[in-house]
Design a binder for these strands. Structure first.
Lengths: 193, 193
DNA sequence: AAAAAGATACATACTTGTAGGTATGTGAAT
DNA sequence: ATTCACATACCTACAAGTATGTATCTTTTT
């Protein structure tokens, strides 16, 4: 694989485990058999690496799911439930302690660096935008109660999901995560007409 | 005020703004006209300060609300809604960008330091425990649907709340926070018989 | 009651590890 | 001949912690 890609992916992995600030880019590179010189050939500084990870790895990963729903034609509620069930299935007892990479970075970096905040905020924005469109479409298709406040519900769904990761991470246990997501799923199934 | 208390409270303030790792304890002390020597007289090291903040400031602040509900006799759902409405009212356009101190520390420190994780986890645990008791009592008082899964709902409420802060922090906007909490409130009001 | 002996609550100055970054070198490809 | 894709060695700012000094207060001794 290309050196830059290797650096991006391995650093992402370590950032997921220890956060951005605690990540030592030179040690990560060394683990890959890559030297500091190579790192600074591809990235201006540590923050440039962080931004690249957000743009190139995190963003696509968080927006894809919702995009697909919009493009599909299955029942709206079913589609949302399927997506969240899929997201849920990706967490297990081993990785739940790591939390959600997006969530982690928001809490750690938003207050320290405005560019980080903006880039992460954009991911949330895009998710909210897509979810609102999905719900709106569901209302038009008469699959979702017309009284539903699309903005409120979209915010609530993303918030609950992120919060579920927080619970799981804090307790380092999949149980609380799954319990919370389960409630979210039944909440969503009650949005129908 | 006592030197130790001053150090605790001012450092807590700065940690809320910049996180634990980015906080420079000596600069915080200096701002208070206190020297490094005084700091290390009261705290073994930076982590001891962090632990003290969690134990002495954060813990009491997060557990008190739910404790009061258990001790009161008002309608369960009303009591929960009042509490969350009160919590909601404490955030505004100026401070929402800081996020929730508990949430912040969980994301930043849980993976880095196990003692931090345990102490923070205990706060989540206590909140879940109290909320479960509150819901259980509500069921007994026939104010809440008997089919309600107390564990799932307790997890969901805490997760949604924490997640709402995450949204607000990421967008540095009170709107998404309030929208999400609003949905949570209406979800809770639907828990009645 | 006075003096001596510790303890308390800091202040000052110094040390050290290291994270992050730079400057320069070099072999291969174009 | 020059650019590309790194490698090596060095630098430096500073966060964290330590060692030591000292004024004041308390306690004990005589």
């Amino acid at each position: 694989m290309e050196t830059r890609t290797l650096l991006l992916e391995k650093n992402f992995e370590v950032i997921c485990k220890s956060g951005f600030q605690a990540t030592r880019t030179d040690k990560v590179a060394l683990d890959l058999g890559i030297t500091k010189g190579a790192f600074y050939y591809y990235f201006k500084d540590k923050y440039a690496l962080g931004y690249a990870i957000v743009d190139e790895i995190i963003y696509p990963n968080y927006v894809g799911h919702w995009q697909k729903i919009l493009e599909s034609n299955t029942n709206t509620i079913e589609a949302i439930i399927n997506t969240i069930t899929y997201i849920k299935s990706k967490s297990n007892a081993e990785n739940i302690g790591l939390g959600c990479p997006l969530n982690n970075l928001i809490q750690e970096m938003s207050c320290i660096d405005e560019i980080f905040r903006q880039k992460l905020s954009k991911i949330i924005d895009k998710q909210l935008e897509l979810l609102q469109k999905i719900i709106q479409k569901g209302i038009q298709k008469k699959e979702i109660k017309p009284t539903t406040n699309t903005f409120n519900i979209a915010c609530f769904i993303i918030a609950s999901l992120e919060g579920s990761y927080t619970l799981g991470k804090s307790k380092n246990s999949i149980d609380v995560f799954e319990a919370s997501v389960q409630s979210l799923l039944s909440f969503i199934s009650n949005l129908n007409v």
